[in-house]
Amino acid sequence: MMLTPAQTIGPFFSHALPWPDGPHVVAADAPGAFWLRGRVLDGAGEPVPDALIESWQADPDGRLGGPFRGFGRCPTDPHGWWAIRTVKPGPVPGAGGRPQAPHLALSVFARGLLHRVVTRVYFADEPTANAADPVLSGLPEPARGTLVAGQTEDGYRFDIRLQGEHETVFFAV
């Protein structure tokens, strides 16, 4: 069957799609909870103030779905910042059942993006698992580094550069 084509989310979704606890993948008191924060920047290095970030991930035991919501949604603010509160996912097998490093799947929607772009968030404090990850290790440096969230005071930071120098790696899924 012919797929329905994608179209841009446009600039006028912020009264429609976000909701108050959208950024809270886990409850405030969940063990190990942290903030994953970042900015979305365009090809000129300018902040993208009208993007929507969505995340999907396993629970700390590597289970997807079920009682664990696993989903986060956050619009960017006027300076391009977004944040979700979550926990580090457990190990999830990749294509062919190969082990992978802990990661989140991320979708970015924005005016000017005719289709979402998809990326993955890995964690800087998992160097051994990251080195063995089949997706990460298949990427050349410095592209690989664009997928690794650095540690911060209250969690991790993951900037998304849509275009140009240090462009984030985006995947076709």
Binding site: L64, G94, Q163, T168, A172
Partner: peptide, 24 residues
């Protein structure tokens, strides 16, 4: 609006793993 926002590099093929094959 695509001119400064569309990625310049081609998308990288990602053979879907369990993370991508599931969803809310």
């Amino acid at each position: 609006s695509t001119l400064r926002r569309a990625p310049s590099s081609p998308l990288v093929t990602l053979p879907p793993g369990l993370t991508e094959q599931t969803g809310p």
